[in-house]
Design a protein around this nucleic acid. Structure first.
Lengths: 155, 155
DNA sequence: CCCCCGTTCATCCTTTCGGGTGATTTTTCG
DNA sequence: CGAAAAATCACCCGAAAGGATGAACGGGGG
């Protein structure tokens, strides 16, 4: 019931207004029929009155347009956690020992220092280091470091 | 003159319309005075006509109001942009050239490749490289890279 | 004018890295 | 169990990096 009133609010308003207007017209018509020689004033009044009514109705009936503007707001997230890229690791085929040596190289250790750290000989480290360069398809350890970080093999 | 017209555009338009309406009213009045017994129809027609005219005028004279609603949409972006740590750079005292060479070392270039890139001799690059190691207080370029990244001197 | 700093370049020498070749031992997997 | 892969080790040699020393030049500031 209330929804019916709300939905048809404009129609009811317009209908009531027209009914009132017709009543007003009839009433004015009867009064001016008595004063017969004043018909020109009567007509002029009606013209102005109903023009104003039309303007009022038009302003009431037009709804303002609603325009939605979407503004994208960038929120930056610092990503500092390293996650090993297992896919790349499998693809490149580094062994556990080779990856270990690569990490120590990237930490700035010399071959001899790595050998001491891992309790192996310098020759062993050189062998692993060479395999790392070969599998990463690079020419020197600085390139290996850069590529391994880029591929998320080392942090 | 033109500004007067532009500023009073509505007034002039409304006045002209009213003049036209009065003319129309007078004209209709003369025609319906001839057919005297049809005064009721005449009045009804005037009422409807001028209501429509008012509506038309209102639509022409008023622009529809546009209401703008701004909606913010959050977009999350991982922050990968490097920001140089100027404090550390000043503290360590690397020159522009030295920093440039360090960056190229970290990109995996050999000394000879850096020399070609910068149009200088290999000796010049070795000199800068040595100064970089000295100022960073490290023993080899892999250590320099690691430290420079840690201190946000290079991306 | 002198001093300092940055840039460039050279030379000599040492150390480290990287390529190549080969072998042995250990571990993993079908 | 046997084959393949991984790990370990050795040796030779050249390339590259790094240390030390020195010099020349230009620009800026006192």
């Amino acid at each position: 019931m209330l929804t019916f009133l709300a939905r048809n609010k404009l129609i009811i308003l317009y209908g009531t207004s027209l009914a009132l207007l017709l009543f007003l017209v009839k009433w004015l018509e009867l009064r001016f029929l008595i004063i017969n020689h004043a018909s020109e004033v009567y007509i002029g009044a009606i013209a102005v009155l109903f023009t104003a009514l039309g303007i009022w109705l038009a302003l009431k009936l037009t709804k303002p347009k609603i325009e939605t503007v979407v503004v994208e707001k960038a929120i930056y997230i610092a990503s500092t956690d390293f996650v090993l890229n297992e896919n790349e690791l499998t693809k490149i085929g580094l062994s556990k020992r080779e990856l270990e040596v690569l990490q120590l190289i990237a930490n700035g250790l010399s071959n001899q220092e790595i050998a001491s750290r891992l309790y192996v000989s310098l020759n062993t480290v050189k062998t692993h280091s060479s395999k790392v360069l070969e599998k990463l398809d690079v020419k020197r350890r600085t390139q290996a470091i850069e590529k391994a970080k880029r591929l998320s093999l080392i942090p």
